Simulated assay, not measured.
Amino acid sequence: MLDQDFIYTLLLTGKLALITTLVLILTGIPIAYWLNYSRFKLKFIAETLICMPMVLPPTVMGYYLLVAFSPENAFGNFLQEYFDVRLAFSFSGIVVASIIANLPFMIQPLQNGFAALPDELRQASYTMGKSKTITLFRVLLPNIKTSLITGIALTFAHCIGEFGIVIMVGGNIPKETRIASVAIYDEVQALNFEAANHYAFVLFILSFLILLLIYSINRKINFTTFR
């Protein structure tokens, strides 16, 4: 019979990944659209900042976020004093950290998808009197379904396996910030390899299924397109 802590940890992991993915779908689409079509001269700085989590060690990012979230510093103190929100060592904090860490995994596939579309498609929609919003959701997004699915799957998969930034910002608080990747580390430290294997096996299967889903859907879409 499965342990309640094991089930709760997996549910917390899924909750974190689901919230992060949903938030990044809502924010990632307009950001990717802006990055691809904007003529803002300093756009490359925004692109650099968004991609930083891909090259910056998670513990480094986690450390700076922890410092920012701490009530002893201006931002953390402002949130706690005026909104009664504590981000350091809390589930809310690891959600915010996870969103920041997973930005490139959602935005880059979408941006690449937009870049691959012929600009005549967008211009034709404008010529027909369609607004930018309608063009985005009715014309552009349906033509980059593969990129959207890839971004969603990569974000979710990366989130369930995130460790460094979570342990730095959230610590290891049962039923609060102890997600599966942290639990694996915790169980190995305690030489409880059987429990660590249970967590690792679940994450392995989930990652495999997510990648299988990406490739199968992309294969089906490509087959339908070129049929």
Rank of each mutant, 00 (worst) to 15 (best):
A116E: 13
P118T: 04
D119P: 00
D119E: 15
L121A: 03
R122A: 05
R122T: 01
Q123E: 15
A124Y: 11
A124F: 12
S125E: 12
S125M: 13
Y126H: 13
T127A: 15
G129Q: 10
K130D: 09
K130I: 05
K130H: 14
K130R: 14
K132W: 04
K132T: 15
K132F: 03
I134S: 15
I134Y: 12
I134Q: 15
T135W: 09
T135E: 12
L136D: 09
L136W: 08
L136F: 11
R138I: 00
R138H: 12
V139W: 10
V139A: 11
L140I: 13
L141M: 15
N143V: 08
I144F: 09
T146W: 02
S147C: 04
S147I: 02
L148S: 01
I149Y: 08
I149P: 00
I149N: 06
I149T: 12
T150M: 14
A153P: 04
A153C: 15
L154W: 09
T155V: 05
T155Q: 01
F156D: 02
F156T: 01
A157L: 15
H158W: 14
C159M: 11
I160G: 05
I160Q: 06
G161F: 07
G161Q: 05
G161S: 06
E162R: 01
E162V: 02
G164L: 05
I165R: 03
V166G: 02
V166R: 00
I167Y: 03
M168A: 12
M168Q: 07
V169G: 03
V169E: 08
V169K: 08
V169P: 06
V169R: 07
G170R: 08
G170C: 10
G171H: 06
N172H: 02
P174H: 08
E176H: 12
T177N: 07
T177E: 07
R178F: 00
I179Y: 09
I179F: 08
I179C: 06
I179T: 14
A180R: 03
S181G: 07
V182P: 01
V182Q: 03
A183D: 02
E187Y: 12
V188Y: 05
V188P: 03
Q189H: 07
L191N: 14
L191A: 14
N192S: 13
N192M: 06
N192A: 12
F193H: 13
A195C: 04
A196H: 03
A196Q: 04
Y199W: 09
Y199D: 11
Y199G: 05
A200I: 08
A200T: 13
A200C: 11
V202Q: 06
L203K: 07
L206T: 13
S207K: 03
S207D: 01
S207L: 03
S207N: 11
S207Y: 06
F208N: 06
F208K: 00
I210H: 04
I210R: 08
L211K: 07
L211S: 10
L211T: 04
L212C: 10
L212E: 11
L213A: 14
L213N: 01
L213Q: 00
I214D: 07
I214W: 05
I214Q: 13
N218P: 01
K220W: 14
